[in-house]
Nucleic acid binder design. Sequence first.
DNA 1: GAGTGGTCTAGACCACAAC
DNA 2: TTGTGGTCTAGACCACTCC
Lengths: 238, 238
Amino acid sequence: MKNAILKYQDVALKIQLMIIQQGLAKGTRLANIEDLINQYGVSRSTIMKALDRLERSGVIYQVQGSGIFVRQLKKNDHLNFMESQGFTNDMSKLSGAFVVYHVDTIKPNLYIQEHLQCEAHDDVYYVKRIRYSDGKIYGFEQSYYLKKLVPYLNKEIAEGSIFTYIKDVCGVNVGFSDKYFNVIKLDAKTAGYLDLAENDPALEVEEVFHTTAGEPFDLSRVVYHYENTKFFIQSHLK
Amino acid sequence: MKNAILKYQDVALKIQLMIIQQGLAKGTRLANIEDLINQYGVSRSTIMKALDRLERSGVIYQVQGSGIFVRQLKKNDHLNFMESQGFTNDMSKLSGAFVVYHVDTIKPNLYIQEHLQCEAHDDVYYVKRIRYSDGKIYGFEQSYYLKKLVPYLNKEIAEGSIFTYIKDVCGVNVGFSDKYFNVIKLDAKTAGYLDLAENDPALEVEEVFHTTAGEPFDLSRVVYHYENTKFFIQSHLK
DNA sequence: GAGTGGTCTAGACCACAAC
DNA sequence: TTGTGGTCTAGACCACTCC
């Protein structure tokens, strides 16, 4: 038995739902903290924590001495770069699918060993696939999963959300990730996968995912199609 | 008189400093919360808030039931994509400089009006400049600042950190930003600024900065040199 | 000055990890 | 079972905005 409902998560969810359902426009002022306390029957700190979460996820912004306001500008044609997990992210809403080329068990080379903090004899799942959506190619992914933490994987699973599987079935708790990215000119082979020409531009993203316990379990490299993918990040500098 | 030292900021800073000064490696366990409370003479909540900040900025990670550990993997050749403000960001450490082409007062077109939520008659500063560092071109920036909030700007100021100026001199409190980006093929003109060829790849980042009060004050478009810039983000999915 | 968000405290209790 | 981080409370007081 895990995941008891935390009050601040519950409150955050309800406030967000309320904003969406009522279709509140950007800049709309919400109830003040005192009212929220009474409305949800929780302590001030709990409300503050809920609001903190909503603020960091870009739903609201708080202005000291003034109020709490709706932020909310969702560009549906842009991918949320912070919430992309390996590949699955927002696109789950779309009608997309994967074409899976490989799901193999391999021995990691030095580069993979270093990033996954494992030994040469440890088994690693190698997944190679392409993400489609609405008939468009979004990107080409090569991923390495530590078998120690992800004991089983096959083509069928890789045709859906691997992360959902990893979390729900393997019981892996995803904690944090390091994301490195840069722009490249495509080589002939990768261009072929993306249905683009050699030397066409692309965004190359390499990411290492860690469990909440700090163990790396997935090294992922995604090359995104430059015409079919746009990204956004809502950041908070306060 | 503003910016009284907040305890949680102070504690966060001291812990981070300690990690750096002692050169603690990734995975090193820190003192437990009880000890931190005694060590810094503050309440549990204050410690927790300090740790929360450090966790979100990628310095540490906390594992329930186990401890607090150093995260810290700074790739110095990568720019922190979350902390890049218009342009200034981490590079401030470098020996870099700007070449400023324009600092003009203009009337905003419809596109700018919409993003800065202003009227056609409002004055806007238009800044066009290039970022150099170690003899390399990092990127080409075009920025629009609302004169209402940034009453003065000139070429000399634009040769340094505009954001530092805006914060310290104009008293603008930077709150949050919306960042949109994608990969493009360079047009001839922009390629010229970056010392690249037409159709070479580039990362195009458009960002709208808001004050803590939620007012947009800067619309910025930066095109980064694909060979000279790499980025990283340390994210927290918990 | 009234109203609103932000900081800080002390302490109870819960959830998870390691032994 | 013990230790450790995480949640939640009630309440005092501070900092800022707006009238």
